[in-house]
């Protein structure tokens, strides 16, 4: 088993958090894993991304030039990463913030998800990242949703533990959306 994903968006959308959750869950399932945050002189409102590699074999590069999959939460990230996705790869696109017509690759699978809108309907638009992660895990089955839920207390600082239930709700919402979407 080998899968890699680039998760990208604005600073503050929580892309690093869902990268951490995914990596932690995969580790707990016995996989090899690397998590690499984008690193540079970052600023508020700027773009941020991370790369997660999950493999049953030893992982060489934590850096990925052409990802097999991507979760794109804003437009600048689509412009930057869509051309790099491997042919036949997967793109989960946040259509609350990006016009789906801007995704131009015919040779990849693009799944449109109104991540912010769904999260807002659930009571907190800030949890768009959890909707994305729930959908991604449902689509790829790279880890179980249960493992993601179990990862929260390890990944989140203790002062945020009271927020775990609402995060889990948004996660499950994303997962259900993908299940229904798959039927379309």
């Amino acid at each position: 088993m080998y899968l890699n994903v680039i998760i990208a968006g604005f600073g503050g959308q929580g892309v690093l958090l869902i990268g951490n959750l995914l990596a932690y869950a995969a580790m707990q399932e016995g996989q090899n894993v690397t998590y690499m945050p984008s690193y540079g002189v970052e600023m508020r409102g700027g773009t941020v991304n991370c790369t997660v590699v999950i493999s049953s074999e030893q992982i060489g590069s934590p850096v990925v030039g052409r990802p097999l999959s991507a979760i794109i939460m804003n437009q600048p990230s689509l412009e930057r990463f869509e051309p790099r996705i491997m042919p036949g790869g997967l793109l989960l696109l946040n259509t609350s913030l990006v016009d789906p017509k801007l995704a131009s690759r015919p040779d990849i699978e693009v799944i449109s998800i109104p991540m912010n809108k769904l999260a807002e309907g659930n009571g907190d638009p800030k949890l768009a990242n959890m909707v994305a992660l729930g959908a991604y895990v449902e689509k790829t089955k790279v880890v179980s949703l249960k493992s993601i839920i179990a990862a929260f207390p390890h990944v989140l600082a203790e002062r945020y533990h009271s927020l775990i239930p609402t995060n889990v709700e948004a996660l499950q919402l994303g997962s259900r959306y993908m299940k229904d979407y798959g039927g379309k």
Partner: peptide, 10 residues
């Protein structure tokens, strides 16, 4: 370097 310093692994 920043890669081995900033990346996470088990």
């Amino acid at each position: 370097d920043a890669i081995v310093g900033q990346m996470k692994e088990p």
